[in-house]
């Protein structure tokens, strides 16, 4: 697994996200309570960024979910389209963090890369302790996050993710897309 952790600490996350997402985040420091997210709280966003980066990690093939701005996709769509899933995320991320603290006595962000991966694998196989997951299924929530991460990473940049079509470049799908020009046979 990838040994260089993309994000270790909150401060670093905020710094990195400012570097990664540029313009809109260059704000006067007097706006202390400013958050770039419309639905997620900063803590939820921080947690989700790390989950998404596990789902699509940066590696030698190219950038991962963080750089593509997947968390912005999910946040935007929870606000604009996925209204019925707002509670899934709100309760799900809370249960996620509680489960993690219960199992490891520390937050997900403090786990090593491999520990994070193992945790998500248990979640995928529905093997997390059930007491934190009474309202939502842990497995179901993980499946939802996988789907949304893929949408944010591979969908059109106009929805918040796939910054500069970076995933298209990764899979050799030419861009920018010029109607009538993208015709080629190898």
């Amino acid at each position: 697994m990838n040994s260089t952790l993309p994000i270790q600490h909150r401060r670093e996350f905020l710094k990195k996200s400012i570097l990664a997402f540029g313009g809109v985040l260059m704000l006067p420091s007097c706006l202390k309570n400013y958050t770039p997210f419309v639905f997620l709280t900063p803590d939820e966003a921080l947690l989700l960024v790390q989950i998404c980066e596990q789902i699509i990690p940066a590696d030698s093939n190219g950038p991962g979910a963080t750089q593509a701005g997947v968390v912005y996709y999910i946040d935007k769509q929870l606000h604009e389209v996925f209204h019925d899933q707002q509670l899934t995320y709100r309760n799900g991320l809370k249960a996620f963090e509680e489960t993690c603290k219960g199992l490891h006595q520390k937050g997900f962000e403090e786990l090593s890369w491999d520990e994070q991966h193992a945790f998500l694998t248990r979640m995928e196989q529905n093997q997390l302790p059930g007491q934190y997951w009474e309202e939502h299924s842990a497995q179901g929530f993980f499946n939802t996050m996988i789907r949304h991460t893929m949408q944010g990473f591979y969908g059109s940049p106009r929805h918040g993710g796939n910054k500069d079509y970076m995933s298209y470049r990764m899979i050799r799908l030419d861009y920018p897309y010029v109607i009538g020009r993208n015709l080629y046979r190898d």
Binding site: Q54, I56, N61, H117, I171, L173
Partner: peptide
């Protein structure tokens, strides 16, 4: 998901 997902995507698209 994870590295395996990405490798498949890159290799086989």
């Amino acid at each position: 998901w994870g590295k395996g997902h990405k490798e498949f995507q890159v290799k086989n698209f």
